[in-house]
Structure formats: C-alpha cells, structure tokens
Write a protein that binds this DNA or RNA. Sequence first.
RNA 1: GGGCCUCUAGCUCAGUUGGUUAGAGCAACGGACUUUUAAUCCGUGGGUCGUCGGUUCGAUCCCGACGGGGCCUACCA
Length: 499
Amino acid sequence: MSDDLIQTEDAFEDDLPEQIAVRLAKRDRLNEMGDAYPVSVPVTTTIDAVRAENPGLEADVATGKIVGIAGRIVFLRNTGKLCFATLQAGSGERIQAMLSLDKVGEERLQDWKDLVDLGDHVFVSGEVITSKRGELSILADEWLMAAKTIRPLPNLHNDLGEEFRVRHRYIDLIVRDRAREVVKIRSKVMQSLRRTFEEEAYLEVETPMLQTIHGGASARPFKTHSNAFDTELFLRIAPELFLKRAVVGGIDRVFEINRNFRNEGADRTHSPEFAMLEAYQAYGDYNSIADLTQKLIQNAAMDVFGTHQVVLEDGTVNDLGGNWPRISMYESLSEAAGVTITPETPIAELKKLASSVGIEIEHPLAGKYVEELWEHFVKGDLVNPTFVIDFPVDTSPLTRDHRSKSGVVEKWDLYIRGYEQATGYSELVDPVVQRARFVEQVTLAAAGDPEAMKLDEDFLKALEFGMPPSGGMGMGIDRLLMSLTGLGIRETIMFPLVK
RNA sequence: GGGCCUCUAGCUCAGUUGGUUAGAGCAACGGACUUUUAAUCCGUGGGUCGUCGGUUCGAUCCCGACGGGGCCUACCA
C-alpha cells in the first residue's frame, strides 16, 4: 500500500495511480475556475432536515421550497442532459441531487460531468422535489464544489476487509452505517454513565496518567521519561491509588472515566490502551458498589436501547435485566469441581487438582490456583450477569478481609457472557495492613514477579490520615460496549492501535 | 513468546499442479443517453501478484528470511 503518493511535484509525474492523477488534474481546474476547497458554502439547511420536513411525498411533485445543502457524493449517475447524485450527510442520511440542462445550463452541467467524482463534497441549491420514481431530490439551480476528494472511495457493494476498516476508520465511517452507529452508541453510553453518577451525587475527577510509581493493579506498564524531571515515568495501569487519595481528602463519592495503559498482549478482548471507569463510595462496601454497578449498566442499556434485553451483533440476546445473582467463588468452585475447596485447602492439594484438569502453573500463592480452578470449572457457564464474590486474600492486596469469613476478601468480579466486566471491593483502609500487603508484593517483585507493585509511600501516608470505610469498583468501558453490542474490542474503539 | 494460516488493480475477490499476454465486479478514462438510484449500452487503460534472496532455461506460484494481517495458545481486563 503506497500512502505517500502525494508528496512532491515530481511524484505527480511518474508513478501516480491513474485515478489520483486524474483527480489532481480536476482539482487544478477547479482552482483555476474558483476554489476546490472554499472556506464555506451557502448551506441553508441539512440533508436530515430536508428529509424530516418532506415526508411521504407523492412521485413527481414540486414543493416550491428552495434549499441549499451539502454532502458527500456516494453514488453518481450521469446521463446526457440530466445527472443524478446521491449525497450523504455525516449522519449517514442521504438525499438525491438532480442536475438538468435546463436548470444549470450547458456549461455548468459539463463542469459537473468533468470535475465531480464519487467521494467529493458538493453543495447544491434548488427546489425540493420528488423524481418520477418518487425519490426525494433537490433539483439544482446551481452547484459548487465544497471539497475535492483526491483518492477514490472504496466500492460500496462489498464489505471492507477488517484490516482496512481498522486502519482506515475514516473510510469505514463514511461507507458503513454500523461503524457510525457504534460511535453513537459509545457516546450515548458515556452520557448515560455520567447521568447515573450525577444522580447518585458522584464527582468526576481526572487523576495522573503519568505516574512515578505504577500501582492499583497487576500488569506490566509502559515506561517513558520526563526530560524536565529527568526521571522515569510510567503510563498508569490504574487510577485507583489516586482516587483513594481523593476519598481521603473528603471527595466521598468520586469517579473517573479515562484511559489505562497495559503493556500486555492484544486480542479480541484486550487493547494496550483501554478506557476504564473507577468509582469510590465512602461509607459504602462491596455490596453497595455492586448495586451501583448493576444500576450503571442497566441504565446504560435502557438509555441507549430502551430495554435490558439487548440484541447483539450475532442476533443473540444479552439479558441484563433483573437483580444479578451473587455467588461465592469457593462455593461455586467446590460445587462444580465436586470437591470441597476452602481458603484452608493446602496449596499442594490445589496444585494436584489443577494438574489433574490440565492447568500446569507454578505459583507461590494458593489463591492463584483457586482463581485458575474457578475459571476452569465455573467461568464458562456464566452467561447472564453474575457477581462472583469473596476472593482469596493473597491475590487481592488492595481489598479488606471479609467481615466474617476468614481467608477471603470482600471482592467481587462481575461476569457477563463469560467475560470479566467489572471488579469491586470493600476497600482496604487500614494503613498498617495495607503496608504489610505491599511489602508482600514487593517481596514477590524481588523474587522476579515484574507485575507486583512497588511501595507507594505517599499513598500509604494518605491512608494514615484516615480513609473512611469505602466500596470501590472498576469497569472496562470498551468491554461494556462489547457486552452491549457483541462486537470485538477493535470495533468498540474507534481508532485501535495498529502497527 | 509458541503453533497454524494469509498478503494478487483504488475496493471486494478469482486464478496460475512453474511457461510467453494474470482475470471479474465496482471504481477510472473516451463516447451515447432528460427520471436514474449498484443506471444502461459501446469502447479503453490500469498490476514490482507484500519485500528481499535462493532453486530453475523460466518464479506471482516452489524454498528461505523479513514485514503486515488473522486464528489458536500463553500473560493481563
């Protein structure tokens, strides 16, 4: 693929694809006659408005209404003395323009045929009519080039290849309704989430993305360097430790929607940068924050689709309605595995069980085996939204111990259609226990675990000033869009990273 | 990171069991056409068959390396 065609005057001469050379020549002619890229064109209305204001007209009707509209040409049908073009607005709405010899005159009709290509933005003004076949049209008195296109649009009769769509999303958005729709859905979901937060009296904040110590999750970070401070910086893997500082400071109900960066593998459900929602609620716990999470998602479904039963890309229905069940990790695992597993089950036994079902991992923490076993035995069967609650303590360093069960923490993961959609905690606010947990992590890091956290002294100091008992949650926005649409992550992100 | 597959015109795709001139539809160019809407009809041009190297009389095709992409797998959300 040659992307640097239009660089130098010399390049015009030689190896330019025919279609581009032809269009550049047309551009030159337009500039000689006037302007191929005028600063504006005298539009009086929009394609959407013309359609909305002229519904259900009979065929071959003249309304007497004169309008000026602009749009991108997506179909072109030139005949001898009457030319047709289909103009598309940014919304995807289309309308037909008709250019006849007796209205625009011989010269301008010839200019149209000579200079206008598929993909061009044009302005036409004239009367709103319907054609003999009943198509709502603008019968032009005049036309103007609004912006000349140099590259040809792909044909609109075959689906674009997936790679082409991702690499040229701007073209995908022009030619594919669904691409535009997904952008719209995403925007509406964001509005809905913010609306729910506002109703619940949360404040939206923005915390650092460039951090000197990365914490709040376990993942490999992207590294960068600050010239001014001459120091290594990390792109954040999570905002958690800063949002908790905000809660310490008295921002009792706080949320952030922003990007996280994780230097891990990319696949259908993982992107190196992804939009994350985190929320914290002083005087709440993992139950109240689960309630909030359910409300956020159900409101989003209702606001965007008007139902909790959302229809996915493949035609299946994702039922997000009702009160979502909360199942215990240890109990659901014990049931599915046919063996009683508790926080007291020795690691050797867990290892043996894991090995017997083909999970071969070496890890010093019993909790890791429990989570792996749970994913093996239970995860696949969870289709409808389900909160899996009460996780092993040793894999959840930022979560408080369970109020009554020993060996587990007050943490849930929300699963929807087999994917982890969100996670929530009763937050660990005891600075002494938090320090001890961090030290364990750092010890692991020293033992060669690159994802273990470094000690964030300033965060610990904040806790020492007293963080109220709190519930907190984190939710992947891209994944929420996936749950609501059934699309892959690279379709829910408008411009996903490509090499 | 490992395994398998893939890359042909502006776009979507055929095809060549190694042979002289690599095809289609849409798009483009020339012509005809005042009611088309994937307009139609006649005619024309357009390709380093991902890149580099090897084998061969001859490579788009076989082999190797590199690059892009996909699927599975591993890690993470």
